[in-house]
Amino acid sequence: MEYTSSNRRIIALNILKQIEEAIVKIQERTSVIHHADDFLLTSGGMEKLDAACMLLIAIGESLKNLDKVTEKKLLPTNTSIPWNDVMGVRDIIAHHYFNIDADEIWWIISKELTPLLEAIRSFIRDLSEESYSI
């Protein structure tokens, strides 16, 4: 599908806002988790792990869609995030769900989500300026 620069910007903004919302949800829902074992020791913890994994899948898929819409031009403008790795988490969780390591998911949540959120919010600020084109 062909997009105009204006359409790409609007669609990209919508995708970025969905990603922002998903990251915030993960952070809020896991605020009581302090270690990977907190996921594994209770059914409530397992529910939080399941929910976080689902949202990580959504984030990865949304980033893939964002990359398509922006013709792979937006994400490379921020080199502080390993975008292919972030998108790859989606594939790992989706295709190897029963082998998910709670330690790895906790590492992503506790160490990687805040920088990702900052990058997403930076893109939102940039794309919110009507003069910005992609």
Rank of each mutant, 00 (worst) to 15 (best):
C53A: 07
M46P: 00
G44Y: 14
S5D: 15
I59L: 01
S122E: 09
S5Q: 15
H34P: 00
E47G: 02
A22R: 07
P115E: 07
S131R: 11
D103T: 10
I81H: 04
T77Q: 14
D101F: 06
I11W: 02
I93E: 04
F98C: 11
S62P: 11
A119Y: 00
S133N: 12
I93W: 02
T70I: 07
M46V: 03
Y97S: 10
L41I: 15
E21G: 05
S62Q: 04
E129F: 13
E130I: 13
G88T: 08
E2C: 06
L13V: 10
A51W: 09
G45Q: 08
G60W: 02
L13K: 08
V89M: 14
I10W: 03
Q18D: 08
T79F: 08
L63E: 06
S43W: 09
E21K: 12
E71P: 06
S131F: 11
F98M: 12
I120D: 03
I11N: 00
I26N: 03
H95I: 08
P115W: 03
V32R: 08
V69Y: 10
I11D: 08
Y97A: 04
P76F: 07
H35Y: 13
H96C: 04
E130A: 06
R125E: 09
S110D: 14
L49A: 13
R8Y: 02
I92L: 14
K25S: 14
E104A: 13
D37N: 09
E47I: 09
G45A: 10
F39D: 02
L127D: 07
I134M: 12
S5L: 14
H95T: 08
T77N: 08
D67L: 00
P82N: 15
N65I: 14
H34N: 15
W107Y: 13
S110R: 13
K17Q: 09
K68P: 07
N99L: 07
S43D: 13
M54W: 13
V69S: 01
L16M: 05
R121D: 02
S62A: 15
I19N: 06
R9Q: 09
N65S: 11
I124H: 08
H34G: 06
S31Q: 15
Y3K: 05
D101A: 05
I81D: 07
L117P: 00
L16W: 04
S31T: 10
D50I: 09
A52Y: 01
Q18L: 10
M87P: 00
S31E: 12
L55H: 07
M1S: 04
L41P: 00
R90K: 08
P76R: 07
T30P: 02
D38R: 05
E2R: 13
D91M: 11
I92F: 06
T42Y: 13
E104P: 01
A52H: 01
L56R: 01
I124P: 03
N65K: 15
E118V: 11
